[in-house]
Design a protein around this nucleic acid. Structure first.
Length: 898
RNA sequence: AGGCCCGUAGCUCAGUUGGUUAGAGCGCUACCUUGACACGGUAGAGGUCUGGGGUUCGAGUCCCCACGGGCCUACCA
């Protein structure tokens, strides 16, 4: 029966089918009671608002490769998927959507708004999950979680209450980061700093009761409306006489004290600082020290407030302009200078963050951080690449309390109730019927929600059933590994470690692999808003998901960012096509072979494959032995690479094996034998070929799941076998290792290449068969080439390879190539380009002479001989000997050419 | 202000503890539409590892300085 197999690999025709199959068959459903070592990994939950971007593609590719690899090695494997409710982003998205419909969400009311968000989530929120299924991630979808589900909410409340009871969560009024666009407080981490060119305005403050003017410099003139003091350094002779006097605040006509505080830098500006405790972190500190009034001159949406005098109601930036103009008109503006400063922006909205006094909930971090530092120090959690360890330590050792409340409606509502009678606070797991202190039933729940990262911080154990000691929790916690981006090391990783240890007494994961960031061609972080992002879904469609995965993996060297290019993607696509065509070759020829009566079952059934390599006439043919030796080496390389998260090395290993060894050499070598009349040799070749092909598919499967699944199903499998994903990753059999076969084939390859090189230089028609001569000093070399003469003749398109003794080797005519171990020659009657040949020889002689000279010098050095390891010296001497022989040959050849 | 990373072939990148003529993919050149594959085959050209100094028998690899690029942390108005 002839097999149908397309000429080129068309991933679009294959991927959807397998993606659906994997999900439908629940192939990756984990069993907490299954035997074997455990591998478990939880997904860094992507925002439910999001769609798959290139960063996810990289992250998920790495996770899936490691996961599939473990599963194929017999681990009890769990890859737990899920999404994050992403408080601010999601709320922003839905608010905007409502606004587009002309609906103000405030008017809708909290309850109705929440309903709208859930509705939106149900309709649009599953996009990324669907995309993950589409790209074939081997998740256990039955265990999918959402950070805001009732199940997760229970855990969040449990954690909040416990921390509150332990005194680690508290409520306080202080200066916080406020986003006037998102209308919520932000944690320090959610404020991104950007260097901007601004100005320094020098403003004259009249000193009450004198004719003096005190000049202060500020970057934010609009805040002066809330000034409650002017500060100078106590040591500053220029201003000593003014301390204790009053300044008259321009525009507001308010008297404010002139105070002395050591925080003032005498060198900066004028050495006199306006103090606005309600709008600047430094000033806030000074204000508390000196018991100054805190006047908030702004509203929550960044406008000037009622206490801002004539400027009330103006936008904060418009007010700045107007204030500067007014000061100028009054003659109170001394000068304006250029000044660069780092400005705080809201991560989400990019709005300039306003420091503002507010009552919020905080989490005390110091005591949580200490054990989290210790586990990393002790290596109980491995951070890879390890240079990130220092960043982690640095941040953890200087950790500050975490603002955990947010003025949003979408999120985990803070489980605190205020007594309307007397303000008592009751914190509880479930809504209390009455105040825990006074018994009043007039309670009101805190309107705020928790920072999204608060629930994310519980992810590794909340998803596995904690606080119950479930089977999942017992089996899969601590998780084995976390793969995530280094940009959320503090946001997320650090907090999971702290909360994980605190609540479970165990680390949440044994290792953290921080993957690279995918950058644009110009090296910037890809950004959707700038339009510089690549759409992985489109690219997957264009090149195939497997090609995309392979490409990302092959570039994913730890610690280096990835710049993705079309060229690189195309090369991975070509690799997929190469494999496809290797399969095509097998099946097309198999059709012919089967006409002889031997069926695929007999050549490639699992039990047949398991006994490879097969011998012909009692001996495993050299090239077959070589192929399996290469296979064993590749398996070891890949296992070693993946153990150390060196995805690029593993990818390179399988690429080299499949394309270089399997396609370029092995298939070419055995081609004639596959349809040979010698049916024993043909059968052996087929069996070995299929066994190696099958092993190669399994090696490649974690990287290219679709293609390998498709081709694997074309080989006979055990009756109950459903997927290559559940087959075993090949193991490097000790029997396969064969150093002799490796070096023997390497020599044959060298001979072939030397002959081909001559042909190319002589510009011989590739189809024209010519005679060649071979000679070598060692008998073993001669025997080897003799034994493989037919293969060499075919590889180099020779009519005949004559093996001649050294002394009979005619190097005087024709074109010659020599190595230290052998010489080859092709007789050629036409005129050879002597000048070119001489130039080539001279260049090679030059290089060799340099190499020889440096080795001779090194070996002549007594210190080197006494200090270098024996192995190096011996190696050097051996190479030197070879190079001398080669040099001699080249020089002789050059002499012959005159 | 402090800390980290990077600078290797035209391009994008590898190069594990310092050790023998520095690798890959793409691109380029030449030849080849051979019965798996032009998303292919064969052969080839092309770097002295940003610059300078140092340690060492020996440095792309370790140290110092400079230049160039990126990132993180940080309350100088």
């Amino acid at each position: 029966m002839a097999r149908e197999i397309a000429k080129a690999y068309e991933p679009q025709l294959i991927e959807p089918r397998w993606a659906e199959f994997w999900v439908k068959e629940e192939l990756f459903k984990a069993d907490a009671n299954a035997p074997g070592p455990v591998f478990s990994i939880v997904i860094p939950p992507p925002n439910v608002t999001g769609s798959l971007h290139i960063g996810h593609m990289l992250e998920h590719t790495e996770i899936d490769i490691i996961t599939r690899w473990h599963r194929m090695r017999g681990y009890n494997t769990l890859y737990l998927p899920g999404t994050d409710h992403a408080g601010i982003s999601t709320q922003r998205v839905v608010v905007k959507q409502l606004m587009d419909q002309g609906i103000d969400y405030h008017k809708l009311g909290r309850e109705e708004f929440e309903k709208q968000v859930w509705k939106w989530k149900a309709e649009a929120g599953g996009q990324i999950t669907e995309q993950m299924k589409g790209i074939g991630e081997s998740c256990d979808w039955s265990r999918e979680k959402f950070t805001l589900s009732p199940e997760m909410s229970r855990v969040v409340r449990e954690v909040f209450v416990r921390l509150y009871e332990e005194g680690l969560i508290y409520r306080e009024t202080r200066l916080v980061n406020w986003c006037p666009d998102c209308l919520t407080v932000l944690s320090d981490l959610e404020v991104v700093h950007e260097e901007r060119q601004g100005h320094l305005w020098y403003i004259k403050y009249p000193v009450a009761g004198t004719n003096e003017l005190l000049v202060v410099a500020t970057t934010r003139p609009e805040t002066m409306l809330g000034d409650t003091a002017v500060a100078v350094n106590p040591e500053d002779e220029r201003y000593k006489h003014l301390v204790g006097k009053k300044a008259l605040l321009p525009l507001m006509n308010r008297e404010i004290p002139i105070i002395a505080d050591a925080m003032v830098d005498r060198e900066f500006g004028t050495g006199a600082v306006k103090i606005t405790p309600a709008h600047d972190p430094n000033d806030f500190e000074v204000g508390r020290r000196h018991r100054l009034a805190e006047i908030d001159v702004m509203t929550d949406d960044g406008k000037m407030s009622a206490v801002a005098g004539a400027y009330a109601g103006m936008d904060r930036f418009a007010a700045r302009k107007k204030i500067v103009e007014d000061l100028k008109a009054l003659g109170l503006l001394e000068k304006i200078t250029e000044h660069a400063n780092a400005i705080g922006l809201c991560e989400r909205s990019k709005t300039i963050v306003e420091p503002r006094i507010s009552t919020q909930w905080f989490c005390r971090m110091k005591s949580l951080a200490e054990p989290a530092i210790a586990v990393v120090e002790r290596g109980e959690i491995l951070i890879v690449p390890d240079n990130r360890r220092e960043e982690y330590f640095n941040w953890m050792r200087n950790i500050r309390d975490w603002t955990i409340s947010r003025q949003l409606w979408w999120g985990h509502r803070i489980p605190a109730w205020y007594c309307k009678e007397n303000g008592h606070v009751t914190v509880a797991r479930e809504a209390p019927a009455k105040c825990g202190t006074c018994g009043s039933s007039r309670l009101e729940q805190d309107p705020d929600v928790l920072d999204t990262w608060f629930s994310s911080g519980l992810w590794p154990f909340s998803t596995l059933g904690w606080p119950e000691n479930t089977a999942d929790f017992k089996t899969y916690y601590p998780t084995t590994l976390l793969i995530t981006g280094y940009d959320i090391l503090f946001f997320w990783v650090a907090r999971m470690i702290m909360l994980g240890i605190h609540f479970t007494d165990k680390v949440p994961f044994r290792a953290v692999y921080l993957h690279s960031l995918v950058r644009t061609g110009s090296g910037e972080k890809m950004s959707k808003s700038k339009g510089t992002g690549l759409d992985p879904v489109a690219l997957n469609h264009q090149y195939g998901t497997d090609a995309m995965r392979f490409c990302l993996a092959s570039m994913a060297a730890p610690g280096t960012d990835i710049i993705l290019s079309d060229d690189r993607l195309a090369s991975s696509r070509n690799f997929a096509n190469k494999i496809w065509n290797a399969a095509r070759f097998l099946f097309v020829n198999l059709d012919k072979f089967e006409e002889g009566g031997t069926k695929l079952e007999e050549l490639a059934a699992p039990e047949v494959r398991s006994k490879a390599p097969y011998a012909a006439s009692g001996l495993v043919p050299l090239v077959d032995a070589w192929l399996f030796a290469r296979l064993a080496g590749t398996i070891e390389t890949m296992n070693d690479a993946l153990t150390n998260y060196r995805f690029h090395e593993a990818a390179q290993g399988v690429y080299q094996f499949f394309w270089g060894d399997f396609c370029d050499w092995y298939i070419e070598w055995v081609k004639p034998e596959l349809l040979s009349a010698d049916s024993e040799r043909a059968t052996v070749a087929w069996k070995n070929l299929f066994a190696a092909f099958d092993a190669a598919l399994r090696l490649l499967h974690p990287f290219m799941p679709f293609l390998t699944e498709e081709l694997w199903h074309q080989l006979p499998q055990k009756v109950e076998a459903k997927s290559i994903a559940l087959d075993r990753f090949p193991e490097a059999c000790a029997d396969w290792k064969n150093a002799k076969a490796l070096s023997a084939v390497a020599l044959i390859q060298e001979v072939v290449t030397a002959l081909r090189t001559i042909r190319a230089e002589l510009k011989l028609d590739p189809k024209k068969k010519v005679a060649a001569e071979f000679s070598a000093a060692e008998t073993a070399t001669v025997d080897l080439v003799q034994a493989n003469r037919v293969a060499v003749e075919r590889f180099a398109a020779l009519s005949e390879l004559r093996i001649v003794p050294r002394q009979q080797f005619d190097a005087k005519t024709g074109a010659v190539r020599s190595t230290a171990t052998f010489d080859v020659r092709i007789a050629y009657s036409d005129v050879v380009d002597v000048t070119a040949e001489k130039a080539r020889l001279k260049k090679e002689i030059d290089g060799l002479q340099k190499a020889i000279a440096s080795k001779e010098a090194q070996l002549a050095n007594a210190t080197f001989r006494s200090r270098a390891p024996e192995k190096i010296i011996k190696g050097l001497e051996a190479t030197l000997a070879e190079q001398r022989i080669e040099l001699k040959k080249l020089q002789d050849r050059l002499d012959q050419l005159g």
